[in-house]
C-alpha cells in the first residue's frame, strides 16, 4: 500500500461568471508500474492510482483513466468553466482500493 499519499490542488478562490479557470493537481504516489523487479529478482506488484476525477458542484470537469505510464507523483492541469459559486471536488482512486479526496471552494460573482 502506498504510504503518505498527500493530495494537493490549486484552483482560484474567486472568478467572474462564465470565466474559464485553470486547475492544477499533484499527489504524492510512487505509481509502481508492476514491471520493476526488487533486489531478489521478484516483480514488484503494480500499485498505481488508476483514475482521477474532478467535479464542480457534482458535475464532471474531467475524468481521467490512468495507466502505469503516468509519472510518479501524478500531475494534472486542466480548465473549468464556472457559472456560479461552488466547490471543486477531486478524487483519486488507488489500485489498492484507497480513495484520496480534496476540495476547493470558489466564489463566482
Amino acid at each position: 500500500m502506498a504510504e503518505n499519499v498527500t493530495p494537493r490542488v490549486r484552483a482560484p478562490r474567486e472568478a467572474s461568471v462564465g470565466e474559464v479557470v485553470s486547475v492544477r493537481t499533484l499527489i504524492s504516489h510512487p505509481m509502481e508500474s508492476g514491471m520493476r523487479r526488487d533486489g531478489d529478482g521478484n516483480v514488484i506488484p503494480r500499485s498505481i492510482i488508476n483514475r482521477f476525477v474532478c467535479t464542480f458542484n457534482g458535475e464532471v470537469v474531467v475524468d481521467v483513466t490512468m495507466e502505469p505510464s503516468i509519472a510518479t507523483n501524478p500531475y494534472f492541469q486542466f480548465e473549468a468553466k464556472v457559472m456560479e459559486s461552488g466547490t471543486f471536488n477531486f478524487t483519486w482512486y488507488d489500485d489498492d482500493g484507497s480513495v484520496y479526496e480534496d476540495s476547493s471552494d470558489i466564489t463566482v460573482s
Binding site: 503518505n4 498527500t6 494537493r8 490549486r10 492544477r24 499533484l26 504524492s28 507523483n73 500531475y75
Partner: peptide
C-alpha cells in the same frame, strides 16, 4: 505547485 519536492517539504 509545479515542484514535487514541495510535497515532501510539506510532509
Amino acid at each position: 505547485f509545479d515542484n514535487p519536492g514541495m510535497l515532501f517539504a510539506e510532509q
